[in-house]
């Protein structure tokens, strides 16, 4: 008996633990929604993971600059847009200049310590090119893992996958994943449309996706005090071009008109409208020409 008693006590304690655990467990679900999610990361980090996601998103940008990147001490103000993200839109002279200016954060060294220390740092401002853009992808992947609600992670990654690496399938999968996590995101739908048009050469699907994006935009944004017109313009202009190519000129014009309302540069759009009207007139005079 004496020899068995430690084991008996141990058994008793284990039983008590088990009993307590089973009674408490259902209640803990009510305590926090952390425990509810099956996601390990979410459970461990809670909302802190958004911060980490941000860090990794930035890390992707660091990677895009081959390590030449301002620290928080070098930044004058919060940078609005990362270079890899802005790289994905049509290159804009103005944007480029602003980026160069922002990245000229080093300036003259203030003292010999700083001057000498620069020999050990990356001091040239470069962007990845020639397929090396792939190096930013793991960071974006991790960022998406940590914060699935961050939309630009998906769009940026998809852009580089599609545009520079030719990985259409992976880009589509990633965007689809993003869409599952953010079913209402116009951005993702827009990027998906570009993928169908440019990557898959499937204007029909691109059109469907963009139309859906427009509907979503209308549903979400039009009611807001400050709707995201920039987004609207992007979708509208791209869709308009598609319609123009398909020969549906009137639809294209109405889309361009929609875009014009919110464009910072309505004159250019007006020019496009005029061109399409020109084409329409030309077609009306020669109706037998094939539309597509």
């Amino acid at each position: 008996m004496r020899r068995a008693s430690p084991y008996l006590v141990l058994g008793l304690l284990l039983t008590i633990c088990f009993a307590v655990a089973t009674t408490i467990q259902p209640r803990t679900r009510a305590w926090s929604d952390r425990a509810k999610s099956g996601d390990v990361l979410k459970m461990l980090l809670g909302d802190g993971r958004r911060m980490f996601a941000n860090h990794f998103f930035e890390q992707a940008d660091v990677s895009f600059h081959s390590g030449y990147y301002p620290s928080i001490f070098d930044r004058r103000e919060q940078p609005g847009k990362t270079a890899m993200a802005s790289g994905k839109d049509e290159h804009d002279e103005h944007d480029e200049a602003a980026h160069e200016k922002e990245m000229a954060f080093r300036g003259q060294p203030r003292d010999w310590i700083e001057a000498f220390g620069r020999h050990f740092r990356v001091t040239e401002h470069t962007h990845l090119a020639h397929g090396q853009e792939r190096e930013i992808l793991p960071w974006l992947r991790i960022s998406a893992e940590l914060d699935p609600q961050r939309v630009d992670t998906y769009t940026v990654a998809a852009y580089w996958l599609r545009e520079k690496l030719g990985k259409i399938k992976e880009a589509e999968e990633f965007l689809r994943e993003g869409q599952r996590n953010n079913p209402d995101s116009c951005e993702i739908l827009f990027e998906l449309g570009r993928l169908y048009r440019d990557g898959r050469h499937d204007p029909q699907r691109a059109r469907n996706v963009w139309e859906l994006a427009l509907r979503k935009w209308n549903a979400q944004e039009s009611g807001k005090a400050e709707p995201n017109y920039f987004q609207l313009e992007k979708i509208a202009v791209h869709l308009a071009r598609l319609e123009e190519e398909a020969g549906r000129f009137s639809r294209a014009i109405s889309l361009l008109e929609l875009g014009k309302k919110s464009s910072p540069n309505p004159d250019a759009l007006q020019k496009q409208v005029d061109e399409i009207k020109e084409k329409m007139r030309a077609r009306e005079s020669a109706p037998q020409a094939p539309a597509y």
Partner: peptide, 24 residues
């Protein structure tokens, strides 16, 4: 070194070959 490599990726990359890819 950065510029030297890339290559293989560039070839199996997108079908459209612009000047950069040629250079690579």
């Amino acid at each position: 070194a950065a510029g030297l490599s890339a290559t293989a990726a560039a070839t199996d990359a997108s079908s459209k070959t612009d000047e950069h890819d040629h250079a690579a």
